[in-house]
Simulated assay, not measured.
Amino acid sequence: MQKIMIVEDDPKIAEHLQSYIEKYGYVAVKVAAFDRVIDEFHKTKPDLVLLDINLPSYDGYYWCRQIRKESICPVIFISARIGEMDQIMALENGGDDFITKPFHPEIVLAKIRSQLRRAYGEYASKVEERILEIENLRLYPERMELSFGGNTAALSKKETDTIEVLMERYPRVAGREDLLEKLWDEHVYVDENTLNVNITRVRKKMESIGIKGAIETVRGAGYRLSVTWSEEDEG
Protein backbone atom coordinates (compact mmCIF):
# COMPACT_ATOMS: atom_id res chain seq x y z
CA MET A 1 0.00 0.00 0.00
CA GLN A 2 1.13 3.53 -0.71
CA LYS A 3 2.32 5.52 2.27
CA ILE A 4 1.41 9.12 3.14
CA MET A 5 3.47 11.08 5.68
CA ILE A 6 1.54 13.76 7.59
CA VAL A 7 3.56 16.68 8.96
CA GLU A 8 0.97 18.64 10.94
CA ASP A 9 1.47 19.93 14.50
CA ASP A 10 -2.23 20.31 15.29
CA PRO A 11 -3.03 16.86 16.73
CA LYS A 12 -6.75 17.05 15.89
CA ILE A 13 -6.11 17.90 12.24
CA ALA A 14 -3.38 15.26 11.98
CA GLU A 15 -5.66 12.63 13.48
CA HIS A 16 -8.52 13.64 11.19
CA LEU A 17 -6.28 13.39 8.11
CA GLN A 18 -4.83 10.05 9.18
CA SER A 19 -8.25 8.53 9.84
CA TYR A 20 -9.71 9.72 6.53
CA ILE A 21 -6.69 8.70 4.42
CA GLU A 22 -6.50 5.23 5.97
CA LYS A 23 -10.22 4.80 5.33
CA TYR A 24 -9.39 4.71 1.62
CA GLY A 25 -6.66 2.10 1.83
CA TYR A 26 -3.49 4.13 2.30
CA VAL A 27 -0.97 3.91 5.12
CA ALA A 28 -0.86 7.27 6.93
CA VAL A 29 2.06 8.09 9.24
CA LYS A 30 1.96 11.13 11.55
CA VAL A 31 5.23 12.88 12.34
CA ALA A 32 5.75 13.62 16.03
CA ALA A 33 9.33 14.96 16.08
CA PHE A 34 8.99 18.26 14.22
CA ASP A 35 12.67 19.10 14.68
CA ARG A 36 13.66 15.91 12.84
CA VAL A 37 11.25 15.80 9.90
CA ILE A 38 13.90 14.71 7.42
CA ASP A 39 14.88 11.82 9.71
CA GLU A 40 11.23 10.78 9.83
CA PHE A 41 11.15 11.03 6.03
CA HIS A 42 14.11 8.65 5.75
CA LYS A 43 12.50 6.25 8.20
CA THR A 44 9.02 6.32 6.67
CA LYS A 45 10.01 6.40 2.97
CA PRO A 46 6.63 7.89 2.01
CA ASP A 47 5.10 8.02 -1.45
CA LEU A 48 3.68 11.47 -0.69
CA VAL A 49 4.01 14.12 2.04
CA LEU A 50 1.27 16.37 3.44
CA LEU A 51 3.16 19.32 4.92
CA ASP A 52 1.98 22.20 7.08
CA ILE A 53 3.82 25.53 6.82
CA ASN A 54 3.66 26.71 10.44
CA LEU A 55 5.69 24.16 12.37
CA PRO A 56 7.86 24.23 15.49
CA SER A 57 11.63 24.73 15.03
CA TYR A 58 11.61 25.10 11.22
CA ASP A 59 8.75 25.89 8.87
CA GLY A 60 7.38 23.69 6.11
CA TYR A 61 9.29 25.56 3.41
CA TYR A 62 12.56 24.56 5.05
CA TRP A 63 11.59 20.90 5.31
CA CYS A 64 10.36 20.81 1.73
CA ARG A 65 13.76 22.10 0.57
CA GLN A 66 15.47 19.35 2.56
CA ILE A 67 13.24 16.72 0.96
CA ARG A 68 13.92 18.12 -2.50
CA LYS A 69 17.66 17.72 -2.04
CA GLU A 70 17.22 13.97 -2.25
CA SER A 71 13.73 13.09 -3.45
CA ILE A 72 11.06 13.98 -6.01
CA CYS A 73 8.36 12.57 -3.75
CA PRO A 74 5.18 14.67 -4.21
CA VAL A 75 4.68 17.30 -1.50
CA ILE A 76 1.29 18.91 -0.87
CA PHE A 77 1.27 21.91 1.46
CA ILE A 78 -1.71 22.29 3.79
CA SER A 79 -1.92 25.64 5.54
CA ALA A 80 -4.22 28.25 7.06
CA ARG A 81 -2.25 30.85 5.11
CA ILE A 82 -4.36 31.96 2.17
CA GLY A 83 -2.26 34.70 0.57
CA GLU A 84 -0.97 34.39 -2.98
CA MET A 85 2.60 34.85 -1.75
CA ASP A 86 2.25 31.82 0.53
CA GLN A 87 1.22 29.66 -2.43
CA ILE A 88 4.06 31.10 -4.49
CA MET A 89 6.54 30.33 -1.70
CA ALA A 90 5.22 26.79 -1.47
CA LEU A 91 5.86 26.19 -5.19
CA GLU A 92 9.20 28.01 -5.17
CA ASN A 93 10.41 25.81 -2.33
CA GLY A 94 9.55 22.59 -4.16
CA GLY A 95 5.91 21.92 -3.37
CA ASP A 96 3.61 20.27 -5.92
CA ASP A 97 0.26 21.56 -4.69
CA PHE A 98 -1.35 23.72 -1.99
CA ILE A 99 -4.51 23.24 0.06
CA THR A 100 -5.88 25.93 2.37
CA LYS A 101 -7.47 25.33 5.77
CA PRO A 102 -10.23 24.71 6.53
CA PHE A 103 -10.41 22.03 3.89
CA HIS A 104 -12.81 19.36 2.71
CA PRO A 105 -11.22 15.91 3.17
CA GLU A 106 -12.60 14.89 -0.22
CA ILE A 107 -10.43 17.54 -1.89
CA VAL A 108 -7.37 16.41 0.06
CA LEU A 109 -7.95 12.82 -1.04
CA ALA A 110 -8.53 13.84 -4.66
CA LYS A 111 -5.27 15.78 -4.74
CA ILE A 112 -3.41 12.91 -3.10
CA ARG A 113 -4.71 10.51 -5.73
CA SER A 114 -3.84 12.94 -8.50
CA GLN A 115 -0.25 13.40 -7.32
CA LEU A 116 0.28 9.67 -6.78
CA ARG A 117 -1.10 8.91 -10.22
CA ARG A 118 1.16 11.46 -11.86
CA ALA A 119 4.25 10.45 -9.93
CA TYR A 120 3.92 6.66 -9.97
CA GLY A 121 1.05 5.69 -12.25
CA GLU A 122 1.01 5.83 -16.01
CA TYR A 123 4.59 7.06 -16.30
CA ALA A 124 6.08 4.39 -14.06
CA SER A 125 4.51 1.60 -16.11
CA LYS A 126 6.31 2.50 -19.32
CA VAL A 127 9.13 0.16 -20.31
CA GLU A 128 10.66 2.04 -23.22
CA GLU A 129 12.01 5.43 -22.22
CA ARG A 130 10.57 8.42 -24.03
CA ILE A 131 12.81 11.26 -25.19
CA LEU A 132 11.44 14.54 -26.55
CA GLU A 133 13.96 16.56 -28.56
CA ILE A 134 13.87 19.95 -30.27
CA GLU A 135 17.07 21.66 -31.51
CA ASN A 136 19.30 19.65 -29.12
CA LEU A 137 17.03 20.37 -26.17
CA ARG A 138 16.17 16.96 -24.73
CA LEU A 139 13.52 16.10 -22.19
CA TYR A 140 13.51 12.72 -20.44
CA PRO A 141 10.02 12.58 -18.88
CA GLU A 142 10.52 9.33 -16.96
CA ARG A 143 13.83 10.54 -15.50
CA MET A 144 12.48 14.06 -14.99
CA GLU A 145 15.62 15.51 -16.55
CA LEU A 146 16.30 18.23 -19.10
CA SER A 147 19.56 18.47 -21.04
CA PHE A 148 21.15 20.92 -23.45
CA GLY A 149 24.73 21.45 -24.60
CA GLY A 150 26.15 18.91 -22.18
CA ASN A 151 24.32 20.43 -19.19
CA THR A 152 21.58 18.61 -17.30
CA ALA A 153 18.93 19.85 -14.85
CA ALA A 154 16.78 17.76 -12.54
CA LEU A 155 13.10 18.67 -12.72
CA SER A 156 10.09 18.41 -10.44
CA LYS A 157 7.05 16.55 -11.74
CA LYS A 158 5.21 19.76 -12.60
CA GLU A 159 8.25 21.24 -14.34
CA THR A 160 8.55 18.06 -16.40
CA ASP A 161 4.86 18.15 -17.35
CA THR A 162 5.08 21.83 -18.30
CA ILE A 163 8.05 21.35 -20.61
CA GLU A 164 6.46 18.23 -22.10
CA VAL A 165 3.33 20.17 -23.07
CA LEU A 166 5.40 23.00 -24.57
CA MET A 167 7.52 20.58 -26.61
CA GLU A 168 4.53 18.56 -27.79
CA ARG A 169 2.70 21.73 -28.91
CA TYR A 170 5.77 23.28 -30.60
CA PRO A 171 5.69 25.40 -32.75
CA ARG A 172 2.08 26.02 -31.73
CA VAL A 173 0.98 27.86 -28.62
CA ALA A 174 0.32 25.77 -25.51
CA GLY A 175 -2.91 27.21 -24.13
CA ARG A 176 -3.30 27.96 -20.44
CA GLU A 177 -6.12 25.42 -20.26
CA ASP A 178 -3.87 22.78 -21.85
CA LEU A 179 -1.26 23.37 -19.18
CA LEU A 180 -3.74 23.48 -16.30
CA GLU A 181 -5.34 20.22 -17.44
CA LYS A 182 -1.93 18.52 -17.60
CA LEU A 183 -0.68 19.89 -14.29
CA TRP A 184 -3.76 19.83 -12.06
CA ASP A 185 -6.71 17.49 -12.40
CA GLU A 186 -8.77 19.84 -10.23
CA HIS A 187 -7.64 23.00 -12.06
CA VAL A 188 -10.90 24.76 -11.22
CA TYR A 189 -9.35 25.36 -7.78
CA VAL A 190 -6.05 26.68 -9.16
CA ASP A 191 -5.31 30.39 -9.13
CA GLU A 192 -4.05 31.78 -12.46
CA ASN A 193 -0.97 33.10 -10.70
CA THR A 194 -0.01 29.56 -9.72
CA LEU A 195 0.55 28.66 -13.38
CA ASN A 196 2.62 31.81 -13.86
CA VAL A 197 4.84 30.77 -10.95
CA ASN A 198 5.31 27.31 -12.45
CA ILE A 199 6.34 28.83 -15.80
CA THR A 200 8.84 31.07 -13.97
CA ARG A 201 10.37 28.01 -12.32
CA VAL A 202 10.71 26.27 -15.69
CA ARG A 203 12.40 29.34 -17.19
CA LYS A 204 14.92 29.35 -14.34
CA LYS A 205 15.67 25.65 -14.89
CA MET A 206 16.28 26.31 -18.59
CA GLU A 207 18.55 29.23 -17.76
CA SER A 208 20.53 26.94 -15.43
CA ILE A 209 21.55 24.80 -18.42
CA GLY A 210 22.38 27.74 -20.65
CA ILE A 211 19.08 28.61 -22.34
CA LYS A 212 17.59 32.10 -22.11
CA GLY A 213 14.31 33.32 -23.58
CA ALA A 214 13.08 29.79 -24.30
CA ILE A 215 9.44 30.38 -23.33
CA GLU A 216 7.46 33.13 -25.01
CA THR A 217 4.31 34.50 -23.38
CA VAL A 218 1.53 34.86 -25.92
CA ARG A 219 -0.84 37.40 -24.40
CA GLY A 220 -4.38 36.13 -24.00
CA ALA A 221 -3.48 32.66 -25.28
CA GLY A 222 -0.73 30.89 -23.35
CA TYR A 223 2.93 30.08 -23.89
CA ARG A 224 5.09 28.96 -26.78
CA LEU A 225 8.49 27.32 -26.87
CA SER A 226 11.03 29.38 -28.82
CA VAL A 227 14.15 27.88 -30.38
CA THR A 228 15.78 31.16 -31.39
CA TRP A 229 18.34 30.49 -28.66
CA SER A 230 19.71 27.35 -30.39
CA GLU A 231 22.16 28.91 -32.82
CA GLU A 232 23.46 31.47 -30.35
CA ASP A 233 24.03 28.96 -27.56
CA GLU A 234 25.55 26.30 -29.80
CA GLY A 235 27.88 28.80 -31.46
Rank of each mutant, 00 (worst) to 15 (best):
residue 70 E to W: 01
residue 72 I to R: 08
residue 72 I to Y: 00
residue 73 C to M: 12
residue 74 P to G: 07
residue 75 V to W: 02
residue 75 V to T: 04
residue 75 V to N: 11
residue 76 I to P: 06
residue 76 I to A: 03
residue 77 F to K: 03
residue 78 I to F: 02
residue 78 I to A: 06
residue 78 I to E: 03
residue 79 S to R: 02
residue 81 R to W: 12
residue 81 R to S: 14
residue 81 R to Q: 15
residue 81 R to N: 13
residue 82 I to S: 15
residue 82 I to W: 05
residue 83 G to M: 11
residue 83 G to A: 12
residue 84 E to V: 09
residue 84 E to Y: 02
residue 85 M to P: 00
residue 85 M to I: 12
residue 85 M to N: 14
residue 85 M to G: 03
residue 86 D to H: 05
residue 86 D to T: 01
residue 87 Q to A: 13
residue 88 I to T: 12
residue 88 I to R: 14
residue 88 I to P: 00
residue 88 I to Q: 10
residue 89 M to H: 12
residue 90 A to K: 05
residue 90 A to G: 11
residue 91 L to G: 05
residue 91 L to K: 06
residue 91 L to Y: 14
residue 92 E to T: 08
residue 92 E to I: 01
residue 92 E to N: 15
residue 92 E to H: 12
residue 92 E to Q: 14
residue 92 E to V: 01
residue 93 N to G: 01
residue 93 N to E: 06
residue 93 N to I: 00
residue 94 G to T: 01
residue 94 G to H: 00
residue 95 G to N: 06
residue 96 D to M: 02
residue 96 D to Y: 04
residue 96 D to G: 02
residue 97 D to E: 11
residue 97 D to R: 08
residue 98 F to G: 02
residue 98 F to T: 04
residue 98 F to E: 09
residue 98 F to N: 07
residue 99 I to Q: 09
residue 100 T to S: 15
residue 100 T to F: 03
residue 100 T to N: 13
residue 100 T to I: 11
residue 101 K to Y: 09
residue 101 K to S: 14
residue 102 P to Y: 13
residue 102 P to D: 13
